[in-house]
Design a protein around this nucleic acid. Structure first.
Lengths: 248, 248
DNA sequence: ACCTGAACACCGTTCAAGT
DNA sequence: ACCTGAACACCGTTCAAGT
């Protein structure tokens, strides 16, 4: 977990401009954004806040609870505001906006990508308004009862699926060596063993999942994301009772 | 990270029936399966193997590298065998089988769910045969060039999306208290603020993402998963050039 | 080649005290 | 109510030795 070459942390730094949960969460997020998940620690956070490690525990129960709040904070802008064509007859516009907003949030905090996906277990760290909004839009579109549940779960899964892996971060240790080695291995693919891959290599290399050596921060997969969303929306529309109502 | 109440580990246990990378990876996986991600440590692993902590480093470069191998091992059976109706004209059957196999793998190792999704960045820990197979099936279905790349990325994202959050594990600490509190909060939802949620609560409670207090191990979301896959397949089919060729 | 043994520089968290 | 201070029981990883 890359310990050696970090600045030695002795005592508090800043004169502590009064602590608060707000400040604790915001500072934690900024550390994770800058240095990554592996480098984040409760002690490092305390140091950044200018207090003793144990002071943080006045505001959060433990590390996991804090991380849940950090995720919630990072996701605070995902719910589209009221004015997004919610009642304008096209539910697909609202969903596309939602998916895009989630992607933006992860894009801004890629080091949190894995946690953001995982946090969807429960509403512990997620705005309950998000749930109500999705349900409202799907209801208005014509989903109800059991079909509403299934559509809801599909929407949440679609929202997190692509983006979680698009921005998943590689081991922080020796990123450059790791990337170089991977790049080499990919270009050395055996055309006899993997003919389709070899034939399409220039198109796929560093632009397709698994066959990459950089993630969405360096190489965003905008086109594929668009297609993915399109696939989901088209599929959802076919799920509606009366065939495809309200064509976009 | 729940340290206190664990058995004190002093020295090696077993007389070490000769170490090997195989044994290191398999033992690591079994520890993670039994005790969860938080409880896994290099030192605990060494103890279980009956060797000194540093002996493990002869077989793996570091913790992250080991975890990548553990994920690869857990995913070893995801690629459908040759005989699955691959060339029988219906590419959707093969894809559905693939998605089901991935789900089974995660279901067997839920504590690894978050890592499994994240590992799709690169082929470091993933079988390259998987890539070739997906490309082959999609090519045969009619996807080519840029469309092939987009379809491939969509397929991988669909494969991991639902399942990653379905089996995401809650903080290991105080699971029962956490679940009880969540259950209470969900049932106490304000019908004025969240009318659609309140109206559909019996249907959604513990059966919809975010509105859950248990995960897929305790409450599998089979129906929703089926719908989700259906949505993806239907959407993918509409992506094909000549409309819907090869109807299932 | 494979493992021991000691050491280094960290961790999260608890508990008792201070103000 | 909010923070200090000391302590406990762990970590991952490096390096020099052993066999």
């Amino acid at each position: 977990m890359t310990i050696r070459q970090r600045a030695k942390r002795t005592r508090p730094e800043r004169p502590a401009e009064t602590l608060s949960k707000q400040r604790v969460v915001a500072t934690a997020l900024s550390i994770i954004d800058r240095e990554g998940m592996d480098a984040f620690s409760m002690r490092g956070l305390a140091q950044a806040l200018g207090v003793y490690p144990t002071a943080v525990y006045w505001y959060v129960a433990n590390r996991n609870a804090l991380l849940a709040e950090v995720v919630a904070h990072a996701l605070r802008d995902v719910v589209p505001p009221e004015d997004v064509a919610q009642d304008l007859g096209d539910w697909t516009v609202w969903l596309k906006d939602l998916f895009g907003r989630y992607r933006n949030a992860v894009q801004r905090h890629p080091n949190l990508a894995a946690l953001m996906g995982a946090q969807m277990v429960s509403n512990a760290g997620v705005n309950p308004v998000l749930v109500e909004k999705i349900l409202t839009v799907l209801s208005a579109a014509g989903f109800k009862d059991e079909r509403l549940v299934r559509a809801f779960n599909s929407v949440v899964a679609v929202m997190t699926g692509f983006v979680t892996i698009e921005f998943a971060t590689a081991p922080t240790e020796d990123r450059d060596r790791w990337a170089a080695e991977l790049k080499r291995a990919i270009h050395a693919v055996d055309a006899r063993e993997h003919p389709v891959l070899a034939r399409n290599l220039p198109r796929l290399a560093n632009r397709a999942f698994i066959v990459r050596w950089q993630n969405g921060i360096d190489v965003p997969l905008d086109d594929s994301f668009e297609t993915y969303i399109d696939v989901a929306i088209k599929g959802l529309r076919q799920l509606l009772p009366n065939g495809r109502r309200r064509v976009s």
